Structures are given as structure tokens and as C-alpha cells.
Simulated assay, not measured.
Amino acid sequence: MKIVYLVSEDWYFWMHRLPIALEAKANGYEVHLISRRGDFTDKIVSYGIHFHEFSIDRKNLNPFKEIGKVKEVGKLLRKIQPDILHNVSMKLSLLGTVASYFYQKCKIVNSITGLGYLYSNSFFLVRLIRYFFSKFASFYFQRTNALSLLENPDDERVFLSSLGLHKDLVKVIPGTGVDLQKFPFTPLKQDSHLRILCASRLLKTKGIVELSEAIRESKKTNPNILCTLIGKIDAGNPSSLSSEFVKQCEEEGIWEWKGFTDDVLPYYQKAHLVVLLSYGEGLPVSLLEAMAVGRGVLTTDVQGCREVVEEGKNGFLVKDKNVEEPVSKLRYLADHLDELEVLGKHSRELAEKKFDRKLVNQTILSIYRN
């Protein structure tokens, strides 16, 4: 049995899809990856995964301009002859599903990891592209009986209404879950500071600008607030922030920017609170990892993010694209550091109950088998 993962970036596969790929390999699948070659490709290949180079312009909002890539992926599918094609992201789900017409013997699984810029932007041109994209995707997803995996109920509702798919072709699972052994519960080491962490790609849609403004304002009355920022400049994304902006904020003392790292555990362990002020997610991996370690979360009341918070028990929800509410919560927690330990314990309990990666992987493997 052969399985192919179609993923835009090798680093994304390494961070989010390698565990299920290795689980599939352990269950007898021959695993292939179609992706852009990058810094993580050799590491991926070292696990016995077959790599096939492919690149796509993620900054291009019009998926139809990438139609030439369909033939490229189709040729690879005919060469590999997989039993299962697992596409990751909205854009690649459509591209991969159409490309499967070049090799029609494979079953298709589409991981919709958030509905993305195409479904979150209200500009006329984007709405026009979204309309035709939805019609096109609806036709091909239904013709191929592709199973689409959504990460939260809000995205499921939008997806079903936009594409008009039968419910049997859509399933909600909690993303890729979180490895509870890799991210063990770690008791909080309290001091006189509120140490917050944001681990995210540096995009406007991740609320990084609002975070900078909230910290700037909060520190006026609570200078004991310290922030560490982890993440890379994602130049391939239309919502990317500039390195100049991030460095300027660091010079102001708003945060300490550590750049990208694939070893985030020590940062979660040093933090007291993990913050993500996103405009919308599939299911935020950084918050799941923080919860596993036993850290409270402050995030926005939007799709994907609200799924990981039990208000007042393991964290707090605030409005998206807003500064006043995050400031209020940060100031409150800076003055009530003793409450952080209780938030963290509830976070770990919730991670064990709902987001254990072992359970998620078993669900995905059962989908492959069926």
C-alpha cells in the first residue's frame, strides 16, 4: 500500500504531518511526500520517506493560476501509483483532487487546515475568486468522493454551505492532536513576572500586530509583563509581516524575538501564559502544545481557537482584531499570578481528554483503511 502526502512546504510537513506519516509507515504503508525542497527535506528522507520535488506559489490568491501544476502533480501520481492521496491545505486539496484524474485508482483525503485567506477576506476580487473556487471544488470533491477533514465545527459549517457537499464527505477531527509525551506536564515556576509566549508564523492574520499593541499598552501599568516571540517570517504568505516590523518591536522592548525553532518545549516550560490573537484557525497547534505542558492560554473567540478554551478554567477568550480586551486580561493576570497554576492544570486535563495525538492518529489510520 502506498500513500502520498501533497504539502506545500517541507518544514510544514516536518512540524505537523511527520508523526502520522511515520505511523502510516509503521503500519505497512510506503510513504511518499510531494513538496518543495527545503531545509528539512534531508531529515524527512532519513526516515525512509520518498521525496518528490514540487513547488507552488502560496502568495498567489488565485488558485486557477496554478492550473499548470495540476499536470505536474498528475504525472507524479501516475509514476508513484498510490493507493491514497492525502492533500494538505484548501488550495492543495483542490489541486491534488483535480490531479488525481491522471491516476484514478487512489482514494483521496483532504485535510482542510483552516479555510485560509480566501475565506477570511472580504475584498470584492477575493470574494469573486472564492465563489468560483467553491463551485469548482464542489464539483471535483463530489465526483471523486474525496473525504475532507475539517478541524473545527465552525469551518465544517462554512465548508458544507459553501461547497454543498454531502455530510458523509466531511469529517471533523482535532487537527493532528498533540504528543502528550513529547510535551509533558511541567509545573509552573512562578516569579514576579508574567512571562508570556507567542509561537506562531509572523502573519497579520495571526494577530501579531494586535499583540504588539496590547503588550505595549499593558506594560505602561504592568512592567512585569515579559513576552517571547517564536516564529519565522513567512514571505510566501500574502499576510506576512516584515522583519523590520518585528525587529522594531523588539528594539522597543515589546518582545524578545527568537526566530524559528523546531525545539519549542523549553520555551513553553519557561512561559506562564501562551497567547495567540489569531483571526481564525483550523486548530492552533501552539495552543495544544502549551496546554499539554500545562500552561493557560489567552486567545481569540474565533473558529479553531475557541475549541481549545473552557472560559475561565484553562484560559480566556477575547475579541479578534481588538486590543482593549487582551490588555484587560493581561493586566488582570499580571496582578493575579497565583491563578496561572490552576489554569495550567485544567489545560493539561483538556489536552489529555480531547487532543491526544495517539487517538487522532488512530482515527486517521482508520480513515486510510476504510
Rank of each mutant, 00 (worst) to 15 (best):
K59D: 02
E151R: 11
I208F: 00
L18E: 00
K329C: 05
T186P: 08
P19T: 08
E9G: 04
S212F: 00
R157P: 05
V158D: 09
F260D: 01
K59L: 01
V327Q: 00
Q303A: 13
Q181A: 07
E23S: 12
H50K: 15
Y268E: 03
F133R: 00
T113S: 10
T221C: 15
F132K: 09
S192T: 12
L163H: 04
V45K: 10
R201Q: 11
F51N: 07
Y103S: 04
I3E: 01
V302C: 13
H86I: 06
F139W: 14
F355C: 05
N87A: 13
T205Y: 01
N145R: 09
V246Q: 00
N222L: 15
Q248N: 15
L340S: 01
V31W: 03
L298F: 03
L226K: 15
S192P: 09
K171Q: 11
S243L: 15
Y332R: 08
I233M: 08
C305N: 10
T97N: 13
F141V: 10
V360I: 05
S122D: 13
I367A: 12
R37W: 07
G236M: 10
Q142H: 07
D179F: 08
L94T: 02
K105G: 02
H86K: 06
S240K: 05
Y268K: 12
G296K: 06
S8E: 07
E341A: 15
L197C: 04
L203H: 00
S286V: 07
F124A: 15
W14A: 06
W14Y: 14
P19M: 12
E156L: 07
T300N: 12
R306S: 05
R17A: 09
D234V: 11
I3Q: 01
Q142L: 11
E66P: 04
S242T: 14
L283K: 03
D320L: 11
V246F: 02
S148N: 14
Q303L: 08
F123V: 07
D262W: 11
